[in-house]
Amino acid sequence: MEQPKYKRIVLKLSGEALAGNLGYGIEADTIHSIAGQVKEVHALGIEVAIVVGGGNIWRGIAGSSQGIDRATADYMGMLATVMNSLALQDALENMDVPTRVQTSIEMQQVAEPYIRRRAIRHLEKGRVVIFAAGTGNPFFSTDTTAALRAAEIEAEVILMAKNKVDGVYTADPFKDPEAKKFDTLTYMDVLNQNLGVMDATASSLCKDNHIPLIVFSITEKGNIKRVVLGETIGTLIADA
């Protein structure tokens, strides 16, 4: 019997991870592959919460650079995360994985409002919970949402799934062939070296609440399961 290392996890998916090779929007094969990996982990009895970004549809920062008010652009980005969350919910439920979407902005026709105690109860009942619409506030990233929700639901780890890299490097490995991959880091390393793993607010939240973060590649099937079983892949970021 495979023995998971963690009981409750937060999986952070970027919007780009859902776009696959398209580079934008939602690629059906990719989202079904991710849903299949989540199902594998769910079958181990692990309580799974997911935070999805919206960069495959809309980026608030990019919108504000085009002259749109930053708060308005960020709210548009939050709506993009809801679209991604509903697509992921559909893919999971087609695989008979019970799933609930909770949004930080109320839209009761499509999802539940975020209520911490209800989210925890869903997890305890074996349902995957997808947190959509970020924190509900502009100027905060979905990385910060993942850190905040992980602290609120007392998750043991955040798994940050990447679609292009398999960990944290000293530089962009696509631009610098000399870039070296880190096996382990501390949150102070991330902040002091400005490594760009997640924004400073998210890193500080994780550090203050002692939540480890594992950065790994989502493109290789079975990687989520490998991480939760304790296999050493990607980069582990934790307190010193």
Rank of each mutant, 00 (worst) to 15 (best):
E2M: 10
Q3N: 15
K7P: 08
I9Q: 09
I9A: 04
K12A: 14
L13D: 04
A17Q: 01
A17V: 14
L18W: 00
G20E: 01
G20M: 02
N21A: 15
G23D: 07
Y24Q: 06
Y24G: 03
G25K: 05
I31D: 14
I31Q: 09
G36H: 06
V38N: 05
V41K: 07
H42F: 11
H42K: 09
G45Q: 10
I46L: 13
V51N: 04
V51L: 00
W58N: 03
R59S: 10
I61T: 14
A62Y: 00
R70Q: 14
A73P: 15
A73T: 08
D74G: 12
Y75I: 15
M76V: 15
G77R: 05
G77L: 11
M78N: 14
L79I: 15
N84D: 08
L86G: 00
A91E: 05
E93L: 05
M95W: 02
T103A: 15
E106K: 13
M107L: 11
P113Y: 03
R117E: 15
L123A: 12
R127D: 12
V129C: 02
F131A: 05
A132T: 14
G136A: 03
F140M: 12
T144P: 04
A147R: 07
A150S: 09
E154H: 12
A155K: 07
L159A: 03
D166K: 13
T170Y: 06
D172Y: 00
P173S: 01
D176T: 01
D176A: 01
K180S: 13
F182Y: 15
N194L: 10
G196R: 01
M198D: 14
M198E: 05
D199W: 06
A200G: 11
A202M: 06
H210E: 00
L213M: 09
V215I: 12
T219Y: 06
E220K: 14
I224G: 04
K225A: 13
R226Y: 06
V227T: 08
V228C: 03
L229V: 12
E231D: 13
T232V: 14
T235N: 09
L236E: 09
I237K: 11
I237W: 01
A238S: 14
